[in-house]
């Protein structure tokens, strides 16, 4: 029995908790991608760097707050900085739309042109972020480090395995739930939210109904700015902030959005967790868990790690390929790519 509990705790500690936190971060990122795809009808390659920009804004404001001696008790100061960073990121996105995307929208450019335009925006944003904050690793998490530390858990339960839940992991999940709840309430209950869904569903009919496309686009960028900032900040808090990492995050985020069904918000969330758990499970050495569960004679010799963590992005790639081959519209019947 204790063996089983130890296995369960080890699995929770190394797979379930990190998977939940990572899944929540991917889900928030994928929500931004899917909203842009649904409403502006292109795949926004600049989204990863938008997240980096949002996180950078949060870091600068956090540093300012820390310099002023403001803190958020046991929680990271970054949470206090978040609303301000969201405002800055939303303004930058609205500016980008005004200067870049609106021109192509007026030209009625093909989605593939907008994709390439977004890659240009991606490079510029990436450059700006690196120029402003540097390329190094930045840790900006302060406050209490653990909700439950491994040592406390062991002392409390008497088990051999410890369970640690970092504050940032707890915050990630709670924040993600709040943000998603607000987003779904907005999309399903408010007039503006419904008009966004209508516009995404059938643009011509939306225009006939008197829905103002520029307003829909504006609201979308603001929401995407908020989602990207929250996702980028949570990821940076949980791991660390490094501009290049966000560029790499683009792949799992797109995989999540496509697996769930592009343009479908619920799909983005489910896709985020699927990708996260696939990545974490496949790259985690299961030896310890199996060691508790199996009789000694069957105990594996190797690490039972299906894939080294260096190859974790391959997991997203493979899932993406399978989905595109078998069910291109994704799990929740989004638009096909």
């Amino acid at each position: 029995m204790t063996d089983f509990l130890n296995a369960l705790v080890a699995l929770t500690n190394f797979v379930i908790v990190p998977g939940m936190a990572y899944g929540a971060q991917l889900a928030l990122g994928a929500l931004g991608v899917t909203l842009i795809y649904g409403i502006l009808r292109f795949s926004n390659f600049a989204h990863g760097d938008t997240m980096a920009f949002g996180a950078m804004a949060t870091i600068f404001i956090t540093w300012t707050f820390q310099a002023w001696g403001i803190s958020f008790g046991p929680l990271p100061t970054a949470i206090l900085a978040l609303p301000f960073a969201i405002m800055i990121t939303a303004l930058v996105l609205l500016g980008t739309d005004r200067v870049v995307y609106r021109f192509y929208r007026r030209q009625k450019s093909d989605p593939v042109i907008l994709v390439i335009v977004s890659m240009g925006v991606m490079f510029i944003m990436n450059g700006i972020v690196r120029f402003m904050i540097g390329v190094g690793d930045i840790r900006f998490s302060d406050g209490e480090r653990f909700i439950i530390s491994a040592r406390d858990f062991k002392a409390a339960t008497g088990l051999k395995e410890g369970l640690a839940i970092k504050t940032t992991q707890g915050i990630t999940i709670v924040t993600a739930i709040i943000v998603v709840a607000i987003l779904f309430w907005f999309l399903n209950k408010t007039r503006t939210g419904k008009s966004m869904r209508a516009f995404s569903d059938n643009e011509d009919l939306a225009l006939l109904s008197g829905i103002n496309p520029e307003r829909v686009v504006m609201v979308t960028w603001i929401i995407v700015g908020a989602l990207a900032t929250v996702a980028g900040t949570l990821y940076g808090l949980d791991k660390s902030f490094k501009p290049f990492v966000y560029l790499q995050l683009l792949l799992p985020i797109f995989a999540a959005a496509i697996v769930g069904g592009l343009g479908n918000p619920l799909g983005a969330i489910v896709g985020g967790f699927i990708i996260a758990f696939a990545e974490v499970t496949i790259t985690y050495p299961l030896k310890k868990v199996l060691g508790y569960l199996l009789p000694e004679s069957l105990e594996p010799d190797g690490l039972v790690q299906l894939l080294s963590t260096d190859y974790k992005f391959a997991v997203s790639f493979v899932i993406l390929l399978i989905v595109l081959l078998v069910k291109p519209t994704g799990i929740f019947k989004g638009q096909s790519v």
């Binding site: 008009s195 869904r197 209508a198 569903d201 011509d204 009919l205 109904s209």
Partner: peptide, 29 residues
């Protein structure tokens, strides 16, 4: 439309992913 003309296109004339009631609400936008 604002002048008072209502038009029902031949195809793609509803919001398929919205509920019936939301379709009507959008009509009254």
């Amino acid at each position: 439309v604002i002048k008072g003309m209502g038009f029902v296109p031949q195809v793609r004339n509803i919001f398929t992913s919205l509920t019936v009631e939301e379709n009507l609400e959008m009509g009254a936008f």
